[in-house]
Nucleic acid binder design. Structure first.
Lengths: 344, 344
DNA sequence: TATGGTTGCACAATCGATTGTGCAGTCTCG
DNA sequence: CGAGACTGCACAATCGATTGTGCAACCATA
């Protein structure tokens, strides 16, 4: 029958139990033995506490203990299923360890990302999980140098001392290339995402290398698109379809990009996959219910999130940064219907 | 050139500037005028602060000011697009007003919901936005009574003094009924969500009433399902399709439910919509790319989130609870391909 | 009975920032 | 020249919890 837990202080509990705040504190924190508080007193204090509905002020505890019990999470867009899945994994793990989670949405802008991180630092977060916007990393490096546990997920720099978890973008792109080549495709267009980012670059390189190993090439005019959205995918696909008549397949760097391509193809009466094969990086739970179920290169979001959580929790427990900084998670090709043999 | 912002205290700044902490505090908080700090001193303090990279401890400020600058958000599942969309709207608005956001995932369990709320209260949050699990509300009522700004979204109790924002579930279900009836359907099954919750109940009632107004009825054996998941939708659809041969249409209470139904139908070679019409409550961005684009009753997530934010921010600014407690947002039917004329 | 060891708890400092009040020094004016 | 007003800042209390240390009261032992 907790009364208002609002503004019931340790002092109130102590008075109610007829003891000092120090005794009350120790009684409630299981320090009775080490500080020789009698069982009888402990009992009285606990009763008083529960009668008054005492909730210790985390604010005061944080100040005194220098432990905020807070973990910060910053992502470019919470509403994006990829990031909300990562967020969820981190959140559930944090809760299991009695941490609370601060969330920040950077709206794909490094500037906001930095602002959130500053805020979180001022709030004394004990660890940070960041899905960076992916252009600039210096602010993250200075945070890691300060000793605060920090793990990056997804769009990370290549060589770096930053602790980071990413999918095998290059390998995944190579898989996509092999899949298309096996089906006889020779003229393949790429619907890329945000050009400056590493995942984009790695996918591009992995794809190109695989093509070149097979004696094919990826000319610049076969690459279009400027970010991971449906709109970008649509516009890029329009350009490619209109300007490259010999094109028989598209590799979209995100499922939204692929949706855009689907729309563009539909408008042009190019049937998928009969006249145009499409493969997409990233999977979507809906991919299998689509008109032509998408063949995809799926990131293992669960593994990404779980690894990030492990790295963070380990640092939190041992106080030491992990030995390895770069953690790569494999991707898997999911063959559905959007890729078939090229018509010659 | 900020040095480690870690553990640079006001004290350090004050010493560096050769003043007391009180003066430093006032200089940095724009209280120079009211407390007669000379411009020269203010200048020195500010320089010292920026040279040291001073970041005031939010923890200490919170304790002293009794203003945590924190808003708590609790949802049943962050990875669910509906909730992540709401979360995003709230988060962006909070950031705009200089608040930070604590997020909690209740995993569809009132017990966890309560635990998070307790945690958040202990952290002195200044406001709460909760998408409740929807079975129990007493803990929420006691929070509202304590005067803390609280807004519920989605699964709310019917009559209640709780401030809440919900879609017009009953009206939406009635729309669904009219749509199906217009197409000649007479034997319609319902794939319901979590039975105890109000949205579920309201949809059921709205649907039933509309049927009855048309002289039809909704017998219990035409209702199946026990929550909003794909699995529940699948199993419920299996039962209905197997046991009710005269069935020509299904009303799914969620898009995952509808996906389950689609799977069940495919397994049974019942083509959608030719042999089975399906309409779903809730829309999905992917609905239009599906094999048979889903006809849906779409909630206006944006409006729900925005209204919630308005209500919270208003309470935060005026200190007064809103005049109206029940806020209802309209829904819109989106006709695509999954509903057609019933074959008699 | 004096000494020393326990037992059981209270006092007060502390975390870092904010704020009411007090106190020198300077200025003003009759 | 002295009283009062002003200027410019420091002192110390405060928010609520934790913790090192001190100190009575009690017990046992010689």
């Amino acid at each position: 029958m907790a009364a208002e837990s609002f503004s019931v202080t340790l002092q109130d509990v102590a008075s109610a139990a007829g003891v000092s705040t120090s005794t009350a504190s120790r009684a409630l924190n299981g320090r009775a033995d080490t500080y020789r508080i009698s069982p009888h007193t402990v009992e009285r204090v606990q009763q008083a506490a529960s009668k008054l509905g005492f909730q210790p002020s985390q604010t005061a505890r944080s100040l005194r203990l220098k432990r905020s019990g807070l973990i910060g999470v910053v992502v470019p867009d919470i509403a994006n299923p990829f990031f909300s899945a990562i967020t969820r994994i981190v959140t559930l793990a944090a809760e299991a360890e009695q941490y609370s989670v601060l969330i920040g949405d950077s709206r794909e802008a490094t500037e906001h990302e930095e602002r959130h991180l500053q805020q979180f630092l001022a709030r004394q977060v004990e660890a940070l999980v960041v899905c960076p916007v992916g252009i600039e990393f210096s602010h993250l490096e200075s945070i890691q140098r300060s000793g605060l546990p920090l793990v990056l997920v997804d769009r990370c720099p290549g060589p770096s001392s930053l602790v980071r978890v990413t999918s095998d973008h290059s390998g995944g792109a190579a898989q996509a290339a092999r899949l298309l080549i096996q089906q006889g495709h020779r003229h393949i267009g790429v619907l890329q995402g945000l050009p400056g980012t590493l995942p984009n670059q790695l996918r591009l390189e992995g794809f190109r290398q695989q093509l070149e190993q097979t004696g094919l090439s990826l000319p610049d005019e076969m690459i279009a698109g400027d970010n991971f959205t449906e709109t970008s995918g649509y516009q890029a696909a329009c350009r490619l379809l209109d300007e490259q008549p010999q094109l028989t397949a598209l590799f979209a760097f995100s499922t939204p990009n692929a949706f855009g391509a689907l729309r563009a193809a539909r408008e042009r009466n190019r049937s998928v996959p009969d006249e145009l094969s499409i493969i997409a990086f990233d999977d979507s739970p809906h991919a299998s219910f689509m008109a032509t179920p998408l063949t995809t290169i799926a990131q293992d979001i669960d593994a990404l999130g779980t690894r990030a959580v492990e790295l963070i929790m380990n640092q939190l427990k041992t106080g030491k940064p992990p030995g390895r900084t770069k953690h790569q998670i494999g991707v898997t090709a999911i063959q559905r219907a959007s890729v078939t043999k090229a018509k010659l």
